[in-house]
Amino acid sequence: MRISTFFYTLKQGVVNIFRNKWFSLASIATISACLFLFGLFYAVIANFQNMIKDAEEKVSLTVFFDETLSREEIEQAGEQIRQREEVSRIEFVSADQAWAEWAPKNLPEGWDEVYLENPLVGSDNYEIYLKDVSLQQEFVVWLESLPQVRDVRRSEMVATTLTGVNAIVAYVSLGIIAILLAVSVFLISNTVVIGISVRKEEIAIMKYIGATDFFVRSPFVIEGILIGLVGSGIPLAAIYVLYQKAIEYVALEFPALTGLMQFLPVEGLFHTLLPIALGLGAGIGFLGSFITVRKHLRV
């Protein structure tokens, strides 16, 4: 393709948008509406998953060792556990440390006069945090197979619940996103059909003169992609502003909530949302115009 032809095609794509400004506006509005919903939904899902991930990170296992093991041997076993890929973090808790933390919270005053010696002797342990709580069961089996390990304590219910909730959220979000995308493609295709029908005559003239399918199609496809990009840029800007306002509002009006849940920063959210939304907008515009203009090429 000549450079001049490329720029001509690009220019025609832009000119087409202004020439059919009402159809272009309708297409942009449709894409914007769909991608705005998509963006909102994505923001909710991303935050929800972030909260689940936070919760998962707080779920730990406690592993106790054979009482005859020396401190050095326990630390060696701890190192062995630390090397495992599933492990996110591991903390050593000595028997003295455990008693000092537990006793004041759970025993009546004067406990230190009753218990002159630490009753938890031999309870040196490790608290283990996993990267993915759904791997807990398999990991426990491995831990229990270690000869140094005496006991493993874990919360099976929390792990199962979090894994289940995570799976449900993933399926529901995939379903809703698929529906939103299908609706977008359908609406865009309809809008582009109307836009192209108006220019059927122009396409026919091009074909009579000897234009290739590529030459005829290119300006329409470029128009579709540009409409898609503008149509995704608008909701992205709106979500950027609204999301920040929402975080500020929650922090101001419901300070108690901020302790319970941690919102994703807007930059973190847009790190993924920006390329996805722009790609979707351009992709929907490309597909809509490419498929539709094809129908009118048989002249």
Binding site: R19, E201, E202, A204, I205, K207, Y208, I209, G210, A211, T212, D213, F215
Partner: peptide, 23 residues
């Protein structure tokens, strides 16, 4: 189908209704 554009470039065509691009 792909050879048709080149074939048509050797034909000039004029219609009753002119078929100009009015914009």
């Amino acid at each position: 189908h792909r050879q048709v554009p080149k074939f048509r470039r050797n034909l000039g065509i004029v219609f009753q209704d002119f078929r100009l691009l009015n914009d």
